[in-house]
């Protein structure tokens, strides 16, 4: 029978996970894990419950960063005042993860560790330039989100290593952002395509453009060709069309149970294009109002 551990401090959890003979696996919200456990009879030698670790809880501001605990749930994220004020696209994404029951359990760290290409929060973390604070019994390290998902369902986590915090830069005053999930239905849906966009738009041109998409490749993907197209451009129809083409050219979506490759590629282009156009329209409106 599986042994269960419910440590209340991080050091204890890391020690347990470092014990090779124990063979313990970390668990948190279990919203994916228990589905597969039921399907395949998952029965590790031991599990370590992460939900009692204070070090993984809470959202706080630390200087120019918002620091989110890995065990913060999506229900907490979508309601958190700091997240809503500074990282609205993360709050928006959190609100699309499953339904209420799942949002009450699923955690940001779980979404990362589970490493599904369809993880709703992941393109947002890419677009916002998230940095992950990881820990083992031997110490801590920081890894940019961009370097975290290595391949289909594979992460940079070492054996016994936990995601402790997710640190997100507070966006500049001229920051713009957009999030769009195209799912299988209006709620409680798995994404067909999910896109997140962040940039600075001061002076009428886009800078520091970060654009990422999920469900279009084996891992969540930065759309770097499209970013390059947009970098330094005004958010107008020409730039939008060029970014759309570049985005479509950068992905290799597949036919699967939720959608088709052809639709995914098309809709990715449409969504990217619309995000750029809407940034442009918002700037125009703002300019008109100011002028």
């Amino acid at each position: 029978m599986t042994r269960a551990f419910r440590p209340t401090d991080l050091a204890e959890a890391l020690r347990l996970l470092a014990d090779v003979d124990l063979g313990a696996r970390p668990i948190a919200g279990c919203t994916d894990l228990l589905v597969s456990k039921t399907a395949v009879g998952w029965s590790p030698a031991a599990v370590v419950d992460l939900l009692r670790l204070e070090e993984l809880r809470g959202v706080r501001r630390e200087g120019e960063r918002i620091d989110v605990g890995a065990a913060v749930t999506f229900a907490e994220l979508r309601a958190d005042p700091l997240v809503r004020q500074h990282l609205p696209i993360l709050a928006e994404a959190a609100a699309t993860v499953g339904a209420w029951q799942v949002q009450n359990r699923a955690t940001l760290g779980g979404n990362l560790a589970n490493a599904s290409p369809a993880g709703d929060s992941l393109p947002v973390l890419a677009a916002l330039g998230a940095e992950l604070q990881l820990a083992t019994a031997d110490g801590e390290r920081r890894v940019a989100y961009d370097d975290f998902h290595l391949a289909y369902r594979r992460t940079a986590l070492l054996p016994g290593e936990l995601i402790v915090r997710v640190r997100l830069p507070v966006p500049a005053p001229d920051a713009v952002g957009a999030f769009k999930k195209v799912g299988t239905r209006a709620a409680s849906a798995i994404s067909k395509v999910v896109v997140a966009f962040a940039a600075r738009a001061g002076g009428g041109v886009l800078r520091e453009v970060r654009l990422a998409a999920g469900s279009v490749a084996p891992t969540p993907l930065r759309l770097r060709a499209a970013e390059r197209v947009l970098e330094g451009s005004a958010p107008d129809a020409t730039a939008a069309d060029a970014a759309s083409s570049a985005a479509r050219g950068a992905v290799q979506p597949i036919d699967d149970v939720r959608s088709t490759a052809a639709y995914r590629e098309w809709v990715l282009g449409r969504v990217v294009r619309r995000m750029v156009l809407e940034v442009g329209e918002a700037r125009t409106r703002a300019g008109t109002a100011a002028g």
């Binding site: 419910r6 279990c30 919203t31 228990l34 039921t38 419950d49 209420w100 029951q101 009450n104 359990r105």
Partner: peptide, 11 residues
């Protein structure tokens, strides 16, 4: 509110 099918009893 949570789905009890996704909660292991240890938690």
């Amino acid at each position: 509110v949570v789905c009890s099918c996704l909660v292991p009893v240890l938690q």
